[in-house]
């Protein structure tokens, strides 16, 4: 029981947007498609929903090929980036739209609409029109309109990108909670790595139509498979050690005023900036070998931060244990 994408290829004119992509998404998974804009993630989502047809390859749900099935007959529902709520219908009517099309009995419709509104905490808004709602409320209605039809898979196309930061953080938790309650598969398209990390069971990182890595957020962060995922998901410092690029996370990069222990790889450099971030200080150091790296220093380390003035000569180093080295592609 799963959604399987098999060797999907999609071209627009002569440009290949999705390159021979294969993927298996398990039932009940919160799965994110992550990548910079133009990487093909939205196109992939639109192929799953049926709005685009792959040039070759198959989309299989429980072994059945969905490719010939039109979008209105697939057991998927989409949440659009712009929400696409029907402006002439109330919130309740928006939710009932799909059920009415399927000729669900009236009593059942009103019961399910109530339940859905309850789940998104918007019972009082049933008779309001979309134009009177805030962005976050529209977002919740759009999600409810999709899941009320009990789809096998819910497809979300950057649904949080139109919200302000605070609302976005709130909706991340809320969406995740809704997904757990409903226990349906969510496929979530985003270009925001923090969003993908916080919400997902697994993340697929895409770049220029290629699938770069598929794994859990933690695994992807701690052991990225290639240079692209390494620097796309979270921050990375790049050192050059014996002619090779070495990637180190800022929290694994040490900074010190005295020489480093001999088992560490160390460089000398000069503090060029320090930014207070609350729990940590971001300390930027320009290496004498060239390049700038970022180190995190615990704010509790007050004495050290006092000494770490801008322009100060410092030592920067890392342990080989945390070094990521990739074959050049």
């Amino acid at each position: 029981m799963a959604l399987i994408l098999k060797n999907i290829v999609k071209k627009f004119n002569s440009q290949t947007v999705v390159q021979d992509l294969s993927l298996k998404i398990e039932d009940g998974e919160f799965f994110s498609l992550l990548g910079p804009s133009g990487c093909g993630k939205t196109t992939l989502l639109r192929m799953i929903s049926g709005f685009e047809t792959p040039d070759s390859g198959q989309i299989l749900l429980d072994g059945q090929d969905l490719t010939p099935i039109p979008s209105n007959e697939r057991p998927f529902r989409m949440v659009f980036q712009s929400y696409a709520l029907f402006p002439h219908l109330t919130v309740g009517e928006n939710l009932a739209f799909g059920l009415k099309i399927q000729k669900t009995p009236k009593e059942e419709i009103s019961e399910r609409v109530e339940n859905a509104l309850n789940l998104i905490n918007m019972l009082d808004y049933k008779n309001r029109f979309p134009e009177t709602l805030s962005g976050g409320q529209c977002q919740r209605v759009a999600v409810a309109r999709a899941f009320i039809n009990e789809p096998r898979v819910l497809l979300l196309d950057e649904p949080l990108s139109a919200l302000d930061k605070k609302m976005r953080d709130h909706m991340q938790t809320e969406l995740r909670a809704i997904q757990r309650k409903l226990n349906i598969t969510f496929i979530f398209v985003t270009h925001d790595q923090d969003e993908a990390m916080t919400m997902s069971d697994r993340i697929a990182v895409m770049e220029r139509g290629y699938l770069k890595q598929v794994s859990s957020p933690h695994e992807m962060y701690s052991s990225p498979a290639n240079a692209f995922t390494a620097s796309f998901l979270g921050d990375m410092n790049v050192f050059v050690h014996s002619g090779q690029k070495v990637f180190i996370r800022p929290e694994r990069t040490l900074v010190s005023l005295s020489p480093m222990a001999s088992d560490l790889v160390s460089y000398s450099g000069e503090v060029i900036n320090k930014l207070f971030k609350g729990v940590f200080w971001d300390v930027y150091v320009r290496l004498s070998t060239g390049g700038v790296v970022k180190c995190l220093v615990d704010s509790k380390n007050e004495d050290m931060m006092e000494d770490l003035t801008i322009g100060k000569e410092v030592q920067v180093g890392y342990s080989q244990v945390y070094a990521h080295v990739f074959e050049t592609e």
């Binding site: 929903s49 209105n72 007959e73 998927f76 989409m78 696409a84 739209f97 099309i101």
Partner: peptide, 11 residues
């Protein structure tokens, strides 16, 4: 995307 939304909802 209104028409796609309607289509997606089964219309």
């Amino acid at each position: 995307y209104l028409d796609e939304a309607a289509h997606d909802l089964g219309a």
